[in-house]
């Protein structure tokens, strides 16, 4: 059974600390949801685990089945079984979806899938996600609508069958039908029991389709609260205000300032609150 362990992860971007000690364990078959305000570092966590060069790991560890993920190159991580569905998938001009998918499948599986079987597999996966077959001959993400890009990410998830899948706001920008179709795709992968899923989201609406085993509240670069799916409903009702205030108080404590309520409230208000 695959397990991804993130321990005390600190990450900075251009000398600015974004992640301040993240601890998280994800096992195959589990679904975790991370919710948190804009700019709290959710995508940073996702990219850091995937190995994006922009992020510097200053301390902490990430292991997949005991193997040091941080020592691996980006492609090694993917071949080890990590997958990131991106919040903003990248356009690759001149490279068709079918060429791209086949290159990825060849890399991850360690051998080129037999052409005839592959064509069938790709077609089935596209049909399941209600994607027009014409997408196969279009260039990767070029001119795709926001929702089409997200379907294409989940198409890759289904074809690559990773051990751990991190889905960064895959639900954002999806219409109601697309949300259902994409969720069903995620659930098909989940149903195999071989994949652990980390779902980064702002909305509980996707959690009606994909039921999380754990919900984590992410504020100012770390997880500040954990619970079951009822925590998501509470967040939707009350927002992140109490966590932000607590975080500001912590920061004030750390700075050695008087931990009076007014100071904490003032600091909290200096941050943009989610609406």
């Amino acid at each position: 059974m695959a397990v991804l362990e993130i321990r005390d992860l600190h990450v900075s971007v251009e000398d600015k600390q974004i992640l301040a000690g993240v601890n998280l364990t994800i096992r195959a078959g589990e679904t975790h949801a991370i919710m948190g305000p804009n700019g709290s570092g959710k995508s940073t966590l996702a990219y850091s685990v995937a190995g994006h060069p922009k992020y510097t790991i200053t301390s902490g560890t990430v292991t997949l089945d005991g193997e040091d993920v941080l020592a691996m190159s980006v492609d090694e991580r993917a071949r080890a079984g990590l997958f990131l569905a991106m919040q903003y998938p990248v356009e690759v001009p001149g490279v068709t979806v079918s060429n791209f998918l086949r290159s990825a499948a060849t890399a991850v599986r360690g051998e080129a899938p037999k052409l005839r079987l592959w064509v069938k597999e790709q077609k089935q996966a596209m049909t399941a996600l209600e994607m027009d077959p014409a997408f196969a001959s279009r260039n990767v993400n070029e001119g795709f609508s926001g929702g089409e890009k997200k379907r294409h990410e989940i198409l890759q998830l289904e074809l690559l069958k990773p051990k751990i899948a991190i889905l960064d706001e895959t639900d954002s920008g999806l219409d109601v039908d697309a949300l259902r179709v994409v969720s069903e795709g995620v659930n098909r992968v989940h149903a195999t029991g071989e994949t652990g899923t980390l779902l980064i989201t702002h909305y509980t609406r996707i959690l009606k389709y994909i039921v999380p085993d754990f919900v984590h509240v992410f504020v100012a670069g770390r997880i500040v609260e954990e619970g079951g799916k009822e925590l998501a409903d509470e967040l939707e009702a009350n927002g992140y205000a109490k966590y932000l205030a607590a975080d500001a108080a912590d920061a004030a404590d750390a700075a050695g300032a008087a931990p009076d309520a007014a100071g904490a409230a003032g600091a909290a208000l200096s941050r943009p609150l989610p609406v």
């Binding site: 980006v74 991580r77 993917a78 071949r79 791209f100 990825a104 991850v108 690559l160």
Partner: peptide
Amino acid sequence: FYLQSRGIT
């Protein structure tokens, strides 16, 4: 990065 994150060297 996008291609590498799909296992491609």
